[in-house]
């Protein structure tokens, strides 16, 4: 079906709206890796608007490599049946704007620093925002990462998660205003 260089006009985005809650979330959505996995970590954060108020009606998706840097290519994005690693997670925010994922820290892929790709959808977002979660202990790899190091130095920290006492990470997302998270154009 290759049609050369002919290009079709792209379908525009529209907001996910406030009413996805009975359709998009699913039971294992936040469990990218099972919590009994020996290397399981928990990612947590809050999604905030330009007034600093939490978003109770956002939904996040993450996509990442496995601990050894392997990008998952098999089926299992939705149904993990308590085992396996899909690389994909989906979690709606709760009434306080909080989300969580159980996953493993990804290994580096192709010389980049390890990172997790993050999308946020919400009422009031006419298209998703795309960002990346980097890891704070990867000082050298982060400094050499071509995408992270291309971001203005004073905003780079918004892409780096904070280590928590339980070995997990905290990654708050500010859509607008002071400390606005760096979002990427695509």
């Amino acid at each position: 079906m290759e049609t050369g260089h002919e290009t079709l006009p792209v379908t525009p985005s529209q907001t996910v709206g406030p009413f996805f809650g009975y359709a998009l979330p699913y039971d294992d959505g936040p469990r990218v890796a099972p919590q009994w996995h020996p290397d399981a970590i928990t990612l947590r954060g809050t999604v905030l608007d330009g007034a600093g108020d939490p978003l109770p009606d956002a939904i996040l998706e993450i996509w990442q490599a496995d601990a050894d840097g392997t990008v998952p290519s098999g089926e299992g994005g939705l149904l993990r049946a308590g085992h396996g690693f899909s690389g994909f997670g989906r979690c709606p925010t709760d009434s306080a704007g909080r989300y969580w994922f159980s996953t493993v820290k990804p290994g580096p892929v192709g010389g980049a620093a390890p990172y997790i790709a993050v999308l946020v959808f919400a009422r009031g977002l006419l298209k998703p925002v795309a960002t990346r979660l980097y890891f704070p202990e990867e000082t050298e790899a982060n400094a050499a990462d071509p995408v992270l190091s291309a971001v203005d130095a004073e905003r780079r920290g918004t892409l780096v998660a904070q280590r928590e006492n339980d070995g997990g990470y905290r990654f708050d997302i500010r859509l607008q205003g002071d400390g606005e998270t760096v979002f990427f154009a695509s």
Partner: peptide, 26 residues
């Protein structure tokens, strides 16, 4: 209050960027 106000950088994605792949469903 939800629209990002800062300019969005265009990342120079290498061929191994994870964003160039995606989850598979069965």
């Amino acid at each position: 209050l939800r629209a990002p106000a800062r300019p969005l950088p265009m990342p120079k994605l290498g061929p191994d960027a994870i964003e160039l792949t995606g989850p598979v469903f069965g």
